[in-house]
């Protein structure tokens, strides 16, 4: 690796001012599992690497007891989320995703914020958070701003982050009652995979436990950025969730997807998967919405 100086700020302000003072020659690093690969491959050649690992902050996801909002520090690892009983019980959609990102070793170092700012279409962490209507807090020289995660991504490897800005926190709004969520990464292996397609789905049901009052469908690798299948969501809203409506929602989502061929998979197959997996995740949501806390069983 090309030599660099590693800087260890303890506060966000310190981090930003270090970035500024080495403008053009610096990069942020958190877990490092993406950044170090880029440096090894000489795609990134910073003289200063500014660590976000040591910035003081919550070391686990927190649920605000009053607002029921979930706060996730961007600097906590996937492993922390994987092992959090709060995530397991209340946000199984997120648990489905984080427990299968990379390996235990990767999850022990890689952070959820890093997964987002990397802004790849296959980011497993992003899809369920999009379905959860999460927003992200971004801190920079101009202070803190907040943006819905769905608007965070601009293209492969591109986000709304401006130079020197840091994604600090993810905020998930309160869940409606009778909400079930699920995420599936479809890959060729059962581990160590980037998704051929990722589907994260969240359904909130009426008191009849059948009618959909709110639907969220996040798709990964279905477009240049993580996307939502808005038309499919609209279709489900107000309808009874069953084999027929889920199949139709799947087809609508498949039509919305802007899939393409890559060495990892072909477009027609990805489109097929959108249809099938939206339907399947819908059933899992239905089942989980009926359970008291949701659950974390494998999907």
């Amino acid at each position: 690796m090309k030599p660099f100086t590693y800087l260890i700020p303890k506060t966000l302000d310190e981090a930003i001012s270090l970035f500024e003072s080495h403008e053009g020659r610096s990069a942020y690093i958190a877990g490092g599992t993406d950044v170090l690969i880029k440096i090894k491959e000489r795609k990134l050649l910073p003289d200063y690497l500014i660590s976000l690992k040591h910035i003081l902050g919550p070391d686990r996801p927190l649920l605000n007891a009053d607002t029921k909002e979930l706060y996730i520090s961007a600097f906590i690892t996937h492993r922390t989320l994987e092992r959090s009983t709060l995530i397991q019980r209340t946000y199984p959609i997120l648990h489905d995703a984080v427990k299968n990102i990379g390996s235990v070793q990767i999850r022990n170092t890689a952070t959820i914020g890093g997964n987002l700012v990397n802004a790849v279409p296959s980011a497993d962490g992003a899809i369920p958070l999009i379905a959860l209507d999460a927003s992200v807090n971004i801190y920079g020289t101009k202070g803190m701003r907040s943006i819905d995660l769905i608007h965070f991504f601009l293209g492969p490897g591109q986000s709304v982050l401006e130079k020197g800005e840091i994604l600090t926190e993810i905020v998930v709004p309160p869940l409606l009652p009778r909400t079930g969520g699920a995420y599936i990464k479809f890959g060729r292996r059962k581990a160590m995979e980037l998704p051929l397609l990722g589907v994260g789905m969240l359904l909130s049901l009426d008191e009849d436990l059948a009618t959909c009052v709110k639907a969220r469908i996040g798709l990964g690798v279905a477009a240049p950025t993580p996307i939502r299948a808005f038309s499919a969501e609209r279709f489900l809203k107000g309808r009874e969730v069953n084999e027929q409506t889920l199949t139709e929602a799947g087809q609508i989502a498949a039509d919305e997807a802007r899939v393409r061929d890559s060495i990892r998979g072909v477009a027609w197959y990805r489109r097929e998967l959108v249809g099938v997996l939206v339907k399947r995740m819908g059933f899992t949501c239905l089942q989980r919405a009926g359970l008291k806390h949701g659950d974390s069983e494998d999907v």
Binding site: I37, Q105, N108
Partner: peptide, 13 residues
């Protein structure tokens, strides 16, 4: 206590 990949872990850490 946590398993990590040393190829993606800086010694300084």
């Amino acid at each position: 206590g946590a398993a990590i990949n040393t190829c993606l872990y800086l010694a300084v850490e």
